[in-house]
Amino acid sequence: MLHIPCPYCGPRDETEFHYGAEAHIAYPENPQSLDDAQWAKFVFIKANPKGWLAERWVHSAGCRRWFNVWRNTITHEFGPSYKPFTQQPKSPV
């Protein structure tokens, strides 16, 4: 089980969280101007790297808040976690 560092509560068991996949996907600024291909990219394309991924989790059974965290998809190692709308820390190497 993952031990996920919630930036509000500290490290907790994975079963307290729900996953939100890739972080930092902004809602389109001009939704009316998007064509179908751009909508498809916004709705369906999420990063799926082999390595470090900045992703979202929500601490459903804890503080119930969303946050972002760096995690390595090969080792399951966590990098820094951070609150939404704050400066994104650099990707761990």
Partner: peptide, 13 residues
């Protein structure tokens, strides 16, 4: 398991 991974293992829960 709920998260992206290439590790070929998952959580025991």
């Amino acid at each position: 398991d709920s998260y992206n991974s290439y590790a070929q293992r998952g959580g025991f829960h």
